[in-house]
């Protein structure tokens, strides 16, 4: 085999997407030049890349400042203790503005929290719906009505309820974080619920027969037969839920002012500097890439747990 021939399948695989991306970048930079907004020209790829670099540099600089701050504090403390060993020196935490990376981390934390809440609610209800046709019939109208509701509609209600119920405003669990997380779970739990219910209800009847012949207890039947048999579908549901949650998160962060990517976009939009559009576009790509990575992680998990091949 010549080297050329061994390369060709690789070329075949990567050439079309590479070409498509190149075309997209060209069309973008050409199109961007044609439109003049009140915030200046629509940024092209080069400007966006530039802003991404600046955001990263700001992050690095901010971290450096924080390190220096703590360093200074330590020195001061040591000096004070030297003069008076019994002095109590209060530790002050650094209060710089959150960097772009901080905002990404907040968003990830929020979506994870929302996803966990959604799963904790959806999985048990889904299993019960799958086991009992009556429960399924009872809950079906509610599920069908609430499923298509937009996060924007939920947010005011969640905000009011959380504000009424959750009074302590601790630094560990800020209200805005909780509001965003709950909104995320309200929108994302449906996919998991429906998939779990469908999965449990459609378990191969032969499996059920085997469980009946062996006279497995209800608990053993659920954990040894029903859940393992449903796991592939449950994971499909979880995967969709996480995707929906990530999408919903941005909108709810914008409105709840949770310091994440959504707020970053909103702030830049309000800010209206000549770099704002480019920064927002950086955020768009970040959101897309993180969403893609989250989806891949779910696919990998799905492959781990399921006995069937996963088509993704």
């Amino acid at each position: 085999m010549t080297p050329m021939k061994s390369i060709s399948p690789v070329l075949k695989k990567y050439t079309p997407p590479a070409l498509a991306i190149a075309l997209f970048l060209m069309a973008w930079s050409f199109g961007a030049k044609q439109i003049e907004t009140s915030l200046g020209q629509v940024p092209g790829p080069a400007m966006v890349l530039d802003q991404a670099r600046i955001l990263w540099q700001e992050h690095v600089a901010e971290r450096q400042k924080a390190r220096e701050f703590y360093e200074r504090q330590k020195d001061r403390r040591a000096a004070m203790l030297e003069v008076n060993p019994s002095a109590t020196v209060a530790a002050v935490s650094y209060t710089g503005k959150p960097t772009y990376v901080d905002q990404i981390l907040t968003s990830l934390k929020t979506v994870f929290m929302g996803f966990v809440i959604a799963s904790l609610v959806a999985l048990p209800i889904g299993i019960i719906c799958g086991l009992s046709k009556t429960v399924m019939r009872a809950l079906n109208p509610l599920i069908q009505v609430f499923k298509p509701v937009s996060p924007l509609a939920w947010l005011p209600i969640v905000t009011m309820v959380v504000s009424a119920v959750y009074v302590t405003n601790s630094a560990w669990l800020p209200k805005s974080f909780l509001i965003s997380a709950i909104t995320v779970s309200l929108c994302s739990l449906w996919a998991t619920l429906i998939n779990t219910a469908m999965g449990v209800a459609s378990v191969n009847p032969d499996y059920i027969n085997v469980a009946r012949v062996l006279q497995l207890s209800p608990l053993k039947k659920t954990f040894k037969v029903l859940l393992p048999a449903t796991l592939p579908l449950i994971f499909t549901g979880l995967r969709i839920s996480l995707g929906v949650g990530w999408m919903v998160l941005i909108a709810s962060e914008m409105l709840a002012q949770n310091p994440g990517l959504g707020k970053f976009i909103w702030d830049e939009f309000q800010n209206g500097s000549s770099q704002s559009l480019a920064k927002i576009m950086v955020a768009v790509f970040t959101i897309g890439l993180i969403g893609f990575v989250l989806d891949r992680i779910m696919v990998e998990l799905q492959k781990r747990v399921s006995f069937e091949r996963v088509h993704a």
């Binding site: 191969n204 032969d206 499996y207 027969n209 085997v210 012949v213 040894k224 037969v225 393992p228 048999a229 796991l231 006995f307 069937e308």
Partner: peptide, 11 residues
């Protein structure tokens, strides 16, 4: 029972 399809738990 031996079923027509083996009906083993594949996991």
């Amino acid at each position: 029972i031996v079923f027509q399809s083996p009906s083993l738990f594949p996991w």
